[in-house]
């Protein structure tokens, strides 16, 4: 059976190796260990375990991997409405405008949505093709069917090639080559009631180009930043 000093010393070793003992108790343990081979062995084992643990915990390499923290914090604050972006814009707008705001986790979530978005786009495109196959395209905006006002590409005579199918667009779209009637400074029938649509066109193609373009007024109020 160990003498009381050994028992006391052995019990104190975990705190002794970490320097967590009062100085008085620490000195007593030291004095005992000087004269006790058993406890010296115990101390060596305790020191080995403490050393590997300490070296592991204080190894500075972990800090090299430290990611950017603030961007994620700020994104979280914006999402919860806890702060407002400086310009008073909404959280998503502010997040997009904040440099480096997208954390890897956020980017990962967006990347996971990409296949869904691609599938949805492909589905819409296929629906558009099916709609195009259902027969000669009807004029999109002209109930009278005046060819001069056609916005959509008509089916050419003969068999339809893949490239032809690809040229077809959904009703209401403005495919290439359909701006010819607009180049005359005329809007297709039915669009006169929406003169603001002309603003989407280059100046020289707008209704009354050169004569009335300067006086063209949008029905929508102009924002302070100049964007309608």
């Amino acid at each position: 059976m160990k003498n009381p000093s050994c028992t006391e010393a052995q019990a104190e070793l975990p705190l002794f190796v970490g320097g967590d003992l009062d100085s008085e108790v620490s000195k007593r343990v030291e004095r005992h260990i000087e004269h006790c081979a058993d406890c010296r062995d115990g101390l060596a084992a305790a020191r080995t375990a403490h050393r590997v643990l300490h070296e592991y915990l204080v190894s500075p390499i972990v800090e090299l991997h430290q990611p950017e923290i603030w961007s994620g914090v700020r994104a979280g604050l914006l999402e919860r409405g806890l702060i407002r972006s400086p310009a008073g814009t909404s959280a998503p707008q502010a997040r997009a405008s904040y440099q480096g705001l997208q954390t890897p986790a956020t980017a990962g979530r967006l990347l996971r949505l990409l296949p869904l978005a691609a599938a949805a786009a492909a589905g819409l495109f296929y629906l558009g093709l099916l709609a195009g196959r259902s027969g000669p395209m009807a004029p999109a905006f002209d109930p009278s069917g005046d060819p001069a006002n056609q916005l959509l590409v008509q089916d050419p005579p003969g068999p339809r090639a893949g490239s032809d199918l690809a040229r077809e667009t959904l009703p209401g779209a403005l495919p290439l080559g359909t701006l010819a009637p607009l180049a005359k400074g005329q809007l297709p029938l039915g669009l006169e009631a929406e003169p603001w649509l002309g603003e989407a066109l280059p100046l020289h193609l707008r209704p009354g180009a050169g004569a009335s373009a300067a006086g063209f007024q949008s029905p929508y109020p102009k924002r302070a930043d100049g964007v309608r």
Partner: peptide
């Protein structure tokens, strides 16, 4: 906290050994 440090180090040492 002292007890946790004491016990934690001891358990760590036992597992390490």
């Amino acid at each position: 906290v002292r007890w946790r440090l004491h016990r934690g180090r001891k358990l760590f040492q036992e597992e390490w050994e």
